[in-house]
Nucleic acid binder design. Structure first.
Length: 794
DNA sequence: GTGTAATGCTATTGG
DNA sequence: AGCATTACAC
């Protein structure tokens, strides 16, 4: 032990030698509440990482450390680094991750004390919207007075403020607000939304926070368990936490008060998610004895970049006193460029990137240096995701390697979601959204109206959709016997999977599901061409690989929450595009400013710096503008050596080409840090991007005959299959044999009518019927039409 | 009942 | 401009 201690001292020194004084003090202050106010690029991540390593070297058990980070990726990088620093394999046991994933883990472990099953489903935004739509339909109110997205964002805001539906019910002033807002039914929607989620055993993203709060608040023993376990708590990006997160962390830390939070008020950019800067002040109030450290020296950027960033942020009124400085060289001035439109903007940036990477000089601001030589050192930042499109097109044509963060994540692809929905339903048969998603994939003769009836039946009897199927009998639900049989076939397939899930691991089970459901054939058949089909099938196989990887990893990690499918699905629901990044090939990175938080790149382009775009026109309240300014501050401080700020004079937005004006933030930058490249306003690309003329041959391979035939053949096969299908099961059946011209009929939708004529045979037998309520006669396919014959002939 | 075509709607930022 | 829901044909 003594030996160990000596060794440890040596390691301590090794560790501390890499830190400046303020950093070192912050790292060594391991007891009691600690607030680290850390400016951009001041070595914040390093301090957190080293502090944990230091804790471990002081003999603190990794089991007793909780680190809450902004992304799971950041947590993983941190863990790897800690492992390097301490050489302690046990480092793997510390809990590090995002609020959402750590809380999901706690809820999974403590499910018995929650209203949810262990394998609760995590609903993403589109699932939540779908639930809200269902509620609105159920209440028979208009989705115009109650726009689902807006409703969801209000619900989300309430949950983040820890206001449950029950709390809401007793709050007359909130309800009064609803009436003034002309949304008197809002509470009812909120209540039913929560109810439906609970019936489905599903939590939305905000529930992960709210339910964790409720769990700990309602169960003192559970709270105590985690208080005793997490003797040391660290929170990164503290400026971006919301009420729910603040409360949970505070509760957990109440026992030992060994809580260290790190943040920078100037980088608070998530107000729309309920984040408030005030929690930094709350922390100081809650812990009057908190040690406070300021990290104000920036190690990341040149003086010109820091100067520009400081001159922007100083225009914000609400700020904690702090000055960011750097001892780095002055460096190149910040390049400010105006381009004609968004296409030229992308082309200009493409050319500039090529020049930088090839080390060619640019006579205007003498941008040459061998320091930036790889695409991976370059990043393009924009305010909205929609801006990435033009870059994709231009870079794609020029074969400039790039990767986009925050695009549709792999797990959001429809075919992947389909397979995931099967798995979710197996793990949690209560999950209505998953049921609705896959009941028709592949088609099994169960349509919308059947699902609607099933939902009504289930709601009336308090069953889940899956349970309802067992209790269905003809006559009660309005579902016909033949369809009930189909439902039962579906259910018994899922039931078999459930049984098999006890024997098989997640990976084998997933494979079985994909095989037995024939989902691949279905996806192929649905795809518009062979290429798409190939890609989609590839994605499904990739998904299977990912389950396989998870099972393998879980097997190696004794602390993992099991290798179960349920754990996998919860994991995947919280995946972000950052977790998917691929560093194998050097590529230019494109992302929103929000996603860039915490990252750094030698060369950064901040694009679309125009009025109403950046700052966003939708965030124009005084506080909103301050947040946009902080966003601008975050964007500029990502750059180490080179920073470009671009804006265009004309941009295509929301279907219109509009004239654009420079962002007001650009005027705020001290001119001594700026090089305005006047030439760029008449910039024409030097390569590749010639203006498209009609005479030029299109490089569009979709027009190639070989591809055309491929498309045709797929469709032909489709048609053939359909014909086959029809002929084998429906041929020979005679629909409404007694129906003839003159018959009186009634239709469930069109009402009373008289048959004018009957034509065709079997599947194609049609009747032309004149309905009383409808001006033009209807031609109905008798195989599908639901009519009652009132009298065969008058 | 299902698939497709046309229409209608909405439109930051993200876990 | 894109996407989702709806309307209609099969």
């Amino acid at each position: 032990m003594k030996q160990n201690r000596l060794e440890s001292n040596e390691q301590d020194n090794q560790l501390l030698i890499h830190l400046n004084q303020a950093q070192r003090q912050a790292v060594q202050n391991i007891e009691g509440p600690t607030l680290i106010v850390a400016g951009a690029g001041s070595g914040k991540t390093r301090v957190i990482t080293f502090r944990i390593a230091y804790l471990l070297l002081q003999g603190v058990s990794p089991f007793s450390i909780l680190a809450l980070t902004f992304t799971n990726k950041a947590a993983k990088v941190m863990k790897d680094r800690i492992f390097q620093l301490t050489n302690w394999k046990e480092g793997r046991y510390l809990w590090a991750g995002t609020f959402h994933s750590i809380f999901a883990r706690i809820l999974r472990e403590e499910w018995a004390n929650t209203p949810y099953p262990q394998n609760f489903t995590i609903y993403d935004t589109s699932d939540s919207i779908s639930v809200i739509r269902a509620v609105i339909k159920e209440l028979d109110i208009s989705n115009k007075t109650y726009p689902p997205r807006q409703i969801l964002s209000r619900i989300s805001g309430l949950k983040n403020e820890l206001i449950t539906a029950k709390d809401y019910q007793h709050d007359e002033s909130l309800k009064e607000q609803d009436r003034l807002r002309l949304q008197p039914k809002f509470f009812e929607i909120y209540r039913r939304y929560c109810e439906k989620c609970i019936y489905s055993g599903a939590m939305d993203f905000d529930d992960l926070l709210l339910q964790t709060y409720l769990l700990l608040n309602n169960n003192p023993t559970v709270l105590q368990k985690y208080q005793l376990r997490f003797r040391h708590i660290m929170v990164d990006e503290y400026q971006d936490i919301n009420e729910a997160q603040y409360k949970v962390v505070s509760m957990l830390a109440d026992k030992f008060e060994n809580i260290c939070v790190v943040g920078d008020d100037a980088q608070s950019i998530y107000a729309f998610r309920g984040a408030k800067i005030k929690y930094i002040q709350e922390f100081r109030k809650r812990y009057a004895n908190a040690a406070i450290y300021r990290l104000e020296q920036n190690y990341r950027s040149t003086k010109s970049i820091i100067g520009a960033a400081n001159s922007i942020i100083k225009n914000n009124k609400k700020q904690i006193e702090k000055t960011l400085f750097t001892d780095n060289e002055f460096g190149k001035k910040v390049n400010l460029c105006e381009l004609r439109n968004e296409i030229v903007e992308a082309e200009y940036i493409r050319d500039e990137i090529l020049r930088i990477v090839n080390g060619e000089s640019n006579d205007s601001n003498e941008i040459t240096n061998g320091q930036i030589s790889s695409y991976s050192q370059i990043c393009i930042l924009y305010r909205t995701n929609a801006q990435s499109r033009v870059f994709e097109e231009v870079f794609g044509k020029s074969r400039l390697p790039y990767q986009i963060f925050g695009n549709i994540s792999f797990y959001q692809r429809s075919e992947v979601k389909d397979v995931l929905a099967y798995l979710k339903l197996i793990v949690n048969p209560g999950d209505q959204e998953s049921f609705k998603r896959i009941i028709g994939k592949p088609t099994r003769g169960i349509g919308q109206s059947t699902v609607d009836r099933l939902i009504v039946f289930a709601n009336r009897n308090g069953y889940s959709l899956m349970e309802s199927i067992d209790y269905l009998s003809q006559g009660h639900s309005g579902i016909s016997g033949s369809i009930i049989a189909k439902l039962k076939v579906f259910k018994s397939m899922i039931d078999r999977f459930v049984v098999e899930s006890e024997k098989l691991n997640a990976s084998d089970l997933s494979q079985l599901v994909v095989e037995r459901t024939r989902i691949i054939d279905f996806v192929k058949q649905r795809a518009e061409n062979e290429e798409v089909a190939f890609e989609k099938v590839g994605n499904i196989k990739e998904l299977l690989n990912s389950v396989g990887d998870f099972v393998e990893q879980a097997g190696n990690d004794p602390e993992a929450s099991g290798e179960s499918l349920g754990a996998y699905l919860q994991n995947v629901a919280l995946y972000t595009s950052q977790d998917e990044q691929d560093v194998q090939i050097p590529r230019v990175t494109l992302m929103t400013v929000h996603l860039s938080k915490g990252m750094e790149f030698p060369c950064v382009f901040v694009v679309g710096l125009e009025e109403d775009l950046f700052p966003s026109a939708l965030n124009n309240s005084p506080e909103g503008v301050e947040e946009e300014r902080r966003l601008m501050y975050v964007a500029t401080t990502r750059a180490e050596k080179l920073l470009y700020l671009t804006h265009v004079s004309s941009r295509f937005r929301a279907g219109d080409r509009i004239q654009s004006f420079p962002s007001p933030f650009l005027d705020e930058i001290d001119k001594k840090f700026i090089f305005r490249d006047r030439k760029t306003s008449f910039y024409s690309p030097t390569l590749g991007g010639k203006p498209k003329t009609k005479s030029e041959p299109k490089n569009n391979f979709y027009y190639e005959p070989s591809n055309l035939s491929a498309i045709m053949s797929v469709k032909d096969i489709d048609k053939m299959k359909k014909v086959e299908h029809q002929s084998e099961d429906k041929n020979g059946e005679d629909h409404y044999p007694n129906l003839r011209s003159g018959s009186k009929v009634s239709h469930h939708k069109f009402g009373l009518g008289v048959v004018k004529s009957v034509e065709g045979k079997g599947q194609n037998k049609k009747a032309i019927i004149e309905f009383e309520k409808i001006p033009t006669p209807k031609k109905l396919l008798l195989a599908y039409a639901k009519i009652k014959i009132l009298r065969t002939k008058s």
